[in-house]
């Protein structure tokens, strides 16, 4: 499979991903729009209400809602992609051509990463420059990338190993989160601690996203950990896809 083939096929892959990429934007509009609209509506006849408070309210809502939109958006964006190719037998068509699964799915991952990030970009731009809320644009972009790289890598590995990638992702993500929270509180068996440290850095991702979206800090070490682990999971997933049967 040549780079020219990958480049030529990328627009088709992007077209398939566009509807999913806007899910996080739609979630933001609903989750952030409703409380802000409700507040503004309730205060419309209040002469003491400061119109400049809108920016502060928006920032508060933005900080509260964005991490949820990014995480859920990444879940919905990544799952069922590879698994569906197998389940619906698209693999039989795609890979009867001189196409290797590793570059094909890597191409889809990279195209998806760019699309997912670009689709959400107008959100911080509009909130900052139109509504005047002090939200970090670059921080949001990096938070978005970090979320998608970790969740995307995890989904790729889950999809390579099982037909139920969504269920596997939820179980691994929630299980890891629970274990890491228990570990942080010091109420976990000692022998479990090294295992928990080796699990995907779900809690680190939460902290990274929170810091970047609040615009308080750039946690470089955690960021490297999250990106590194996500890329590692992606590579592992692609290696499994390479070795394992394409049809089940």
């Amino acid at each position: 499979m040549t780079l020219a083939t990958l480049r030529a096929y990328a627009p088709w892959q992007l077209r398939e991903l566009v509807p999913r990429a806007f899910v996080s934007v739609a979630m933001f509009i609903v989750f952030a729009g409703i409380p802000v609209f409700a507040t503004m509506h309730a205060q419309r006849n209040n002469p003491d209400f400061d119109p400049n408070a809108l920016g502060k309210i928006l920032k508060m809502v933005y900080v509260g809602v964005t991490p949820l939109c990014l995480t859920l958006g990444a879940f919905l964006f990544m799952t069922r992609s590879i698994a569906e190719d197998r389940e619906r037998n698209y693999v039989r068509f795609i890979f009867s051509h001189p196409v290797s699964p590793v570059p094909f799915y890597l191409n889809r991952f990279v195209a998806g990463l760019a699309l997912f990030t670009l689709c959400f970009l107008p959100v911080p731009l509009v909130v900052r420059y139109y509504f005047g809320a002090d939200v970090p644009v670059l921080g949001t972009v990096v938070a978005k990338l970090a979320t998608l790289v970790l969740i995307g890598g995890l989904t790729t590995l889950c999809a390579a190993l099982t037909a139920k990638d969504g269920l596997a992702l939820i179980l691994v993500y929630m299980g890891t989160q629970l274990l890491q929270q228990l570990s942080a509180q010091g109420i976990l068996y000692e022998w479990l601690q090294p295992i928990v440290r080796g699990l995907p850095p779900v809690e680190s991702l939460k902290l990274v996203v929170k810091s970047l979206i609040e615009g308080t800090d750039w946690p470089v070490t955690d960021l490297v950990h999250v990106f590194g682990y996500g890329i590692g999971l992606l590579v592992a997933g692609l290696l499994v896809i390479r070795r394992a049967p394409l049809v089940r």
């Binding site: 030529a8 096929y9 088709w12 037998n89 039989r92 068509f93 051509h97 001189p98 196409v99």
Partner: peptide, 26 residues
């Protein structure tokens, strides 16, 4: 290859489906 069942997404147009596959065919 012609498989037993045509399982392409049914929302694709015929010419569009062939165009995609022509790209993959190199």
């Amino acid at each position: 290859y012609l498989p037993e069942l045509m399982t392409w997404p049914l929302t694709w147009r015929s010419d569009e489906a062939l165009k995609r596959m022509a790209v993959l065919a190199g």
